[in-house]
Nucleic acid binder design. Structure first.
Lengths: 221, 221
DNA sequence: ACCTGAACACCGTTCAAGT
DNA sequence: ACCTGAACACCGTTCAAGT
C-alpha cells in the first residue's frame, strides 16, 4: 500500500462527493438562476471532468431535484402573529411571501417539480387552525385555506416576473396620461406610477381575508 | 430574363417571408411550448436553411418578441356582465382568466417580455369603470384595480404550473390522512382531494371583491 | 469505487459566398 | 434582396477505458 489515498490529477482538490457537487450547484443557482447551471460550468467550478458529476448525481434533472428537495426541507416553520384570526391569517400570508422571496430562483423550480404541497404543509396547517378559529368548517374551510395559498403563490410569481422584466412597454404612464381619466386625476396618477408590490400584496390579502372570514369588525356568519 | 422568379433549391416551396416564418413559429409554440421552438426545427419545418430565418427575423429572441406582440394585439375586448359592480368585476376577472388560458404558452412569454400592462389595458379600463361605480376614488381605486389584476395573473400562473406538474409528492392525501384533522373530517377530505382550480379561483375572486368593494349586500363604506 | 477523455447529437449565431 | 453551407462556441449525455 504505497499511499492510503492515491492522489488524483489535481492533488490539492479534496475528493469529490455528492455533497460537494450539490453545494457548488446550489451556489451557482443562487447567484445566476437555474439556467446558468450547466454541467460543464459546474465541472469547471469543481475542477473535475464533466463526467465525474454524472457519477455522483445521475444527471442534470436529478441534480436540480435534489437541490429543490433540500431547500424545501430548510424552509422554516410559520409562526402566526396577531390577536384575531383575520390578523393571524394575514401574518401567515406575509411570512409565506417573505420565505418564498428569500429563495427567488427556487419557487418556480419547486413548482415545476411538484413539491409545492409539501412546501406549503406547515403553512397549510397553520391556516387550517386559524380558519377553524374563525368558525369555518369542512369544505368551506378548505376553500378558504386554498384561496389564501393560491393567492400568495400567485402574487410571488407575478412579482418575480415583474422583477425579471422591469421595463414595461408602452408603459403605464403613457397609457394613463392626464386625459385618460380626467374625472379622477388621483386614480390616473396612481395608475401611472409603477405598482408597489408589497402594497398590492397587503391590500389584496387583507381584502381576501375580509371576504373569506367576514369583515374584521363584523362577526363571522 | 429566362424566368421571372428564379426557382430556389426546392421549386415547390413558396418564397420565404417574415409572415411565413412567424406563422410556422407560432404553430410550433402553440403545439409544444416555447422551448420546442428551435431555429433548426423551424428551418426544417419550412424547408429552408437555418440561416435564412435569420435574414427575416433577426434572431430567436426577436422572433419570440414578434410572436408575443402579435398575440397581445389579438386579445379580445372585455365585456363586463351583471348588475352590481361586484358581479361585473367578478365577470371581468373570469373573462380575463378565460382569455389567458386560451393562450397557455404565451402568458409567461408576455410577462417575461414586459408586455403585461399593454395586455391588460382593456381589462384595466373596464375595472376602473366598475370600481368607480362602486364608489372608490383615487389611490384606493387604483389599489383595488391592481389587486384584481395581480390576483388573476397569479391564479393563472399557479394553474399553469400545476398543470405542468400534476404529480404532487408526498401528495396531499398522505399529508391529510384521517388522523391529521380528526376533529373536522370534512375539511380533511376536502384537502385530501386535488383542488379544483376553477372553484378556488371563483371563491378567491368573490372574496377579494367582497373585501375590496364591501360585501355585496352591505353598502360601500 | 471513482474519475477520465473522446464522441454523439443537439443548440444559437456569424460570416463569406453565392444568385 | 434573398438564400446557402461551413464554422464557432456552446449544450447534456453515453461509454469504454483507466486507476
Amino acid at each position: 500500500m504505497p499511499s492510503p489515498q492515491p492522489s488524483p490529477a489535481s492533488p490539492s482538490r479534496p475528493r469529490l462527493s455528492r455533497e460537494t457537487v450539490l453545494a457548488a450547484a446550489a451556489s451557482l443557482v443562487k447567484q445566476h438562476g437555474p439556467q446558468a447551471l450547466t454541467m460543464r460550468k459546474l465541472a469547471a467550478e469543481l475542477g473535475t471532468a464533466v463526467t465525474s458529476i454524472y457519477w455522483h448525481v445521475g444527471n442534470r434533472e436529478s441534480l436540480l431535484e435534489a437541490l429543490v428537495e433540500r431547500t424545501v426541507r430548510e424552509l422554516g416553520d410559520i409562526r402566526p402573529r396577531g390577536r384575531t384570526p383575520h390578523a393571524r391569517v394575514v401574518s401567515i400570508a406575509r411570512a409565506l411571501r417573505r420565505e418564498l422571496r428569500a429563495h427567488p430562483h427556487l419557487i418556480a423550480m419547486v413548482h415545476e417539480r411538484g413539491l409545492t404541497e409539501r412546501m406549503f404543509l406547515s403553512a397549510q396547517q397553520a391556516l387550517v387552525h386559524e380558519v377553524h378559529a374563525a368558525g369555518l368548517r369542512g369544505a368551506r374551510a378548505a376553500e378558504a385555506v386554498r384561496a389564501v395559498q393560491f393567492s400568495v403563490i400567485g402574487h410571488v410569481l407575478v412579482e418575480r416576473n415583474r422583477e425579471r422584466a422591469p421595463v414595461q412597454r408602452p408603459g403605464e404612464p403613457e397609457l394613463w396620461g392626464p386625459e385618460a381619466a380626467e374625472e379622477d386625476p388621483g386614480l390616473a396618477r396612481a395608475l401611472a406610477r409603477a405598482p408597489d408590490p408589497e402594497r398590492v400584496f397587503t391590500v389584496s390579502v387583507r381584502a381576501l381575508v375580509d371576504g373569506l372570514l367576514g369583515l374584521p369588525d363584523s362577526p363571522a356568519p
